[in-house]
Amino acid sequence: MSKFIKAALASSVLAASVMGANAAHAATANADARANILEELTVTKDAGTDLDFGTIVTTGTAETVTVGTDGVRAACVNVVCSGASDAADFSVTGSASEAVTLTVPGSVTLSGPGGAIMNANLSSSALTALDASGNGAFSVGGALDVAATQADGAYLGTFTVTVDYP
């Protein structure tokens, strides 16, 4: 719906000054105005929302900790899970009823202390088209594979999510 307006006013100032100098001869002044209206799109991550599995304490048995696209963490059986969990929420705006597709990587590797790694499989909610007001939203959740002997420490990773316009 929203339009990004780029207005280019060509030579109107110059024309006006020339006209002013010859005011006795010119009854009218011409000015050109052009506006190029572009379709735009935006992607924003809703503040305070990140894919967060909370705090996990291993107990010597492997477990997959899953956070759904609604941000709710499935019950942990073999590990102790605490703290709030969350999914990453994104908002998209663009042209009304426009088809879009999402590219979300299937899995991401997190690196931890001393070369330790952890794997997470990502999932996203569906977004196939923006609504009649040009708005859309999607969330990314994931399933984290915690090994039985997973080293303690901080694990970091990045993943790239793109909204693709056809």
């Binding site: 990140d50 202390p113 997973q150 990773g157 999510v161 316009y165």
Partner: peptide
């Protein structure tokens, strides 16, 4: 950085940073 995360005596913390963007044809 890893050191910026609070140290935990037990268990681990996870920071997954999304890089998000747009593609246009």
């Amino acid at each position: 950085s890893v050191t910026a995360s609070p140290e935990q005596a037990d268990g681990f913390s996870i920071a997954l940073t999304p890089i998000y963007g747009v593609t246009i044809p």
